[in-house]
């Protein structure tokens, strides 16, 4: 060891001076925030593609399609967006040290996400147009499908975090996994609000 290190131990700086740099710190949260910023660009790309195609279209709706029904999706949206609140509550319980409160609200958030996905699946089944019905069909299924994939990923992540919460001493080294998952969930919700405005509100 000493042969491979050229440094006299007395030359080592005070470990406190390099704070997190000592040992093997983890920077999950930094990395995850950067990842989310990057991931948002792909949605931005899809949104701008959708907007460009819709603006330049002469016949946006395929023949025989009336447009989208918005009441049921609105209810789904309210459920999904309010799950941002329940996940925040779960985190709050986690902070207070109440693990069971955390798990309850965490599970509730997962259930709300699952409800949204089910509603989405039901909507897909009832629609009169398909993926290949012009750019309208293509962009609709692409945007909702890609977002749905993120919702499913979020639920899986939450399941993982829920299981991990039963590991003794899991939160001794911080709780970056929980914070990251919750950030991801907020991200998915914000994207959905934009999506809802683009797909259902903008006629």
């Amino acid at each position: 060891m000493s042969t491979s290190s050229p440094l006299d131990p007395s030359a080592a700086p005070d470990p406190a001076a390099h704070g997190e740099h000592g040992g093997h710190p983890n920077f999950t949260l930094t990395g995850f925030v950067i990842f989310l910023l990057s991931e948002s660009v792909i949605f931005l790309a899809f949104f701008s593609g959708y907007t460009a195609l819709k603006l330049s279209a002469t016949a946006w709706l395929p023949s025989g399609v009336e447009g989208l029904e918005w009441q049921t999706p609105l209810i789904n949206s309210v459920v999904l967006v309010s799950s941002s609140g329940t996940i925040a509550l779960a985190e709050w319980f986690k902070h207070r040290g109440s693990l069971w409160g955390f798990r309850a609200f965490w599970l509730l958030t997962m259930a709300m996400g699952a409800y949204f996905l089910l509603g989405q699946a039901q909507e897909w089944r009832s629609l009169s147009f398909g993926f290949t019905d012009g750019t309208f069909g293509g962009t609709f299924y692409l945007l909702t499908g890609f977002h749905g994939l993120h919702v499913a990923t979020g639920i899986l992540l939450m399941a993982l975090m829920l299981l991990k919460s039963f590991l003794p001493g899991n939160y001794d080294g911080g709780e970056q996994g929980v914070v990251a998952t919750s950030l991801f969930w907020h991200f998915v919700d914000v994207i959905w609000i934009l999506l809802f405005l683009l797909l259902y509100v903008w006629r």
Binding site: S38, E39, S40, V41, I42, L44, A45, F46, G49, L53, A57, T58, A59, W60, F131, T132, G134, T135, F136, G137, G138, T139, L142
Partner: peptide
Amino acid sequence: PALTGGAVMLLLDLTVGTTFYDPTGGG
């Protein structure tokens, strides 16, 4: 991510038959 988004749409046009870039389908 922007390239990936564009490439996903290209792959869908190629394999599934969507028309994001196909003028005959409004693309």
